[in-house]
Design a binder for these strands. Structure first.
Lengths: 221, 221
DNA sequence: TTTGACTCTAATGTTAACAGTTAACATTAA
DNA sequence: TTAATGTTAACTGTTAACATTAGAGTCAAA
């Protein structure tokens, strides 16, 4: 099979590298990023790095301070709630649209696949968060609405930061494939109201988990 | 009175200038943008311009072709439908959240203000589209959820391009303040289902208008 | 007519250096 | 001692130049 070869620019490598560093916690929330240090660390020039940073800025992973100084975004409890409110609305729409597709059986199969992966990696914290996000991303992909996926992706960075801030271990405690099983089952049954309720509940619980982690870390400090 | 001086970087000026050029139709859909030409036109270096372009790329106003060549995004009928589907979901959420705020009366007042402007400019095409977007943006602002506004803004560029492609005159024909009056009235009455239905209808009609404009221009060509 | 090698050009990718600004520290004078 | 004023170091804003590559065009040989 002949595929398009992918050309990878330094800028894109920086982008991926930075994103990974942030979402893995190597660069923690609030940390100030110095262009000169980073460009040296990546072995690229400042101009190249800056383009990547501008992108991350708009993705919501970085925020600009008064003098243009970029730092890793910190997300408080209120913002977390707001983000998940939007996220929920998007995924509810995704579920409804998926259901309305003529080939929804096939699309559901993709979702079941993502679910299977989620079960497979149960126990591995790093993999589990990836599998979880993958499941929800798949839901948006299979909605048949690319704009919906794009919009969801614009929230993904912020979601990852929230999880990272809450602490991987805390965030994932009580988080299992079972809950996602419920979503797929509900989707299969196909009652729109039921689907919405199930997703609302799923998200509400996720927020509660993350917020509680915030509070215990508040107590620590 | 001594005020804080407004610090405006060249990058941000380029950003605004480019956005304006695109959404005003000076740069038409599909047009290829050459860095060297633009940087010369703006009187800035390529590096500075590139940062602005990267941002517009992620805003969805520009798309990158092979070898990184950026051109003004063209939106087809299918994409238009997808975008408005997401937009509708966001605004429905905004309306529901606005309604749930403790000071929703005050927030509704802001919306009425935007409505008044819409009535005031009736007739002036350029102003009308601005007032229309302003109304819907205000709805998101007054939802009390900043993340919702941010997400909506990430669609605004694409929406403007759609309108521009459809042609200002065609897009705005049949578009009146009356229809927005209905939204506010429904919001005031406060029945969630009714609010959703009204917004759905509003958007469905908007898409129909825009798509019909596409088709007549298809016939022209 | 087509293929292949070659050149040339135009555009983006990338870099290094310069300029301006801020914040912290050192110095001086009252 | 302290408050005002140099002074310096660090960082971002900005630029100009160099590197690389896709694409068009040319031309000769099969």
């Amino acid at each position: 099979m002949i595929r398009n070869l992918k050309r990878t620019t330094l800028r894109d490598q920086c982008l991926d590298g930075l994103r990974a560093a942030i979402t893995s916690g190597q660069l923690h929330s609030g940390q100030h990023l110095v262009e000169t240090e980073l460009s040296e660390a990546f072995g690229v020039s400042r101009g190249t790095l800056r383009e990547a940073m501008r992108r991350l800025e708009q993705e919501g992973l970085l925020v600009a301070g008064p003098r243009g100084q970029l730092s890793v975004r910190a997300i408080d409890k209120a913002e977390l709630g707001h983000i998940y409110e939007v996220r929920t609305a998007l995924e509810v729409l995704a579920a409804q649209r998926l259901r309305a597709q003529p080939d929804h059986a096939q699309r559901l199969a993709h979702l079941r696949e993502a679910l299977a992966r989620l079960q497979r990696v149960e126990g591995d914290l790093g993999e589990q968060i990836e599998a979880d996000l993958d499941f929800h991303r798949t839901l948006c992909e299979q909605s048949g609405n690319p704009a919906l996926l794009t919009t969801w992706l614009s929230l993904e960075g912020a979601i990852r930061i929230s999880v990272m801030q809450a602490g991987l271990d805390r965030a994932l405690r009580n988080m299992s494939a079972d809950r996602h099983h419920l979503i797929v089952d509900t989707l299969e049954r196909g009652d729109p109201g039921e689907i919405e309720d199930e997703l609302q509940r799923h998200m509400r619980e996720a927020v509660a988990r993350l917020v509680s982690a915030y509070e215990t870390s508040d107590a620590d400090s």
